[in-house]
Amino acid sequence: MKVSIITATYNSEKTIEACMASVLHQSYPDIEYIIVDGGSNAETLELLHTTAKEYPNIILSSEPDKGIYDALNKGIAKATGAIVGFVHSDDFLADNDVISTIVAAFNTHQVDGVYGDLHYVALENTDKVIRNWISQPFVFNLLKQGWMPAHPTLYLKKSIYDKYGLFDLKYKIAADYDFILRIFRQENLSFFYLPKTIVKMRIGGASNKNLKNILQKSKEDYRAIKTNHIGNWLTVLLKNVSKLKQFKA
């Protein structure tokens, strides 16, 4: 079963090598690696092109886009794997057997999606865990409590995107949350929680880097909740409060 992994990047020369290495060194043999660059500087592009020449499973494109969700949508459109996942340019897979473990979960449990846990790590010292996002098995009422799986850990059958659509570009920060609500509320879909750290994410993501972005994220979260007919402002509040227990003392 082929797995398509998508990385969207823009001027990521400081982190993209570690990101790519974590994908390219996976033990799973059938990975299609799609890198969607947004028209980066020469240094980033040189790293991308040099690596792409060494690995025939890399599909590389570089052109201006409308932001990360547009880039991810472009990647999904190129994907030919039965399973699709993302590794963002500041992130890296937690170990070399992550994809093998995910595929085994798909095969064993016959589900539409698999998700797991995520570590937020320090920007320079990636061994230092700042925030530990431990998920849990899915039940529908969790959505009303502001729960969501960590999106970078979520691997889905490609057929899910074909049927339920891509990321909505009206959202600048919360398109992943809107998409998750859209698919997790479908009664005919099944998901498996893998109690394993899937991704390590460097701190400093767009949704949390300043108060303005946090407020915009909350507004977009509320719009996603209303659009998908799940919850209200209390759901947004619970979603934000639930993150506090993830931080390491």
Rank of each mutant, 00 (worst) to 15 (best):
K163P: 14
K163Y: 12
Y164A: 06
G165D: 11
G165E: 06
G165Q: 13
L166I: 10
L166K: 07
F167R: 06
F167N: 12
F167K: 06
D168C: 06
D168P: 13
D168V: 06
L169E: 13
L169M: 07
L169W: 01
K170R: 12
K170G: 10
K170V: 04
K170I: 06
Y171G: 03
K172C: 04
K172F: 00
K172Q: 07
I173S: 04
A174F: 00
A174M: 08
A174Q: 07
A174V: 08
A175W: 03
A175D: 06
D176S: 13
Y177G: 11
Y177F: 09
D178A: 07
D178Y: 01
D178R: 06
D178F: 02
D178L: 01
F179C: 12
F179G: 13
I180E: 13
I180H: 10
L181F: 08
R182H: 11
F184D: 15
F184R: 14
R185I: 10
R185F: 05
Q186V: 15
Q186G: 13
Q186N: 11
E187S: 14
E187G: 14
N188K: 14
L189R: 15
L189C: 13
S190V: 14
F191I: 15
F191E: 12
F192H: 15
Y193I: 12
Y193P: 12
Y193G: 11
L194H: 14
P195A: 07
P195Y: 01
K196Q: 13
T197R: 13
I198E: 15
I198W: 11
V199D: 02
V199G: 05
M201A: 09
M201N: 09
M201T: 12
R202S: 11
R202I: 08
R202Y: 02
I203D: 03
I203V: 14
I203K: 10
G204L: 03
A206N: 05
A206V: 00
S207D: 00
N208C: 02
N208K: 10
K209S: 04
K209Y: 03
K209N: 06
K209H: 11
N210D: 11
N210V: 01
N210A: 00
N210Y: 02
L211C: 01
L211N: 07
N213T: 03
N213P: 02
N213A: 00
I214H: 05
L215W: 01
Q216N: 09
Q216Y: 00
Q216P: 06
K217P: 03
K217I: 08
S218W: 00
K219L: 00
E220P: 04
E220K: 01
E220M: 03
E220G: 01
D221V: 10
Y222G: 02
Y222D: 00
R223L: 06
R223Y: 04
A224F: 05
I225Q: 11
I225H: 15
K226N: 03
K226G: 03
T227I: 14
T227K: 15
N228L: 01
H229L: 07
H229R: 11
H229F: 04
I230T: 09
I230G: 08
I230D: 05
I230V: 12
G231K: 08
G231R: 10
G231H: 03
G231D: 09
N232Y: 07
N232W: 07
N232V: 05
W233T: 10
W233E: 03
W233A: 10
W233L: 10
L234P: 04
L234D: 11
L234A: 09
T235F: 06
T235L: 06
T235P: 14
T235G: 08
L237Y: 06
L237K: 13
L237C: 07
L238K: 14
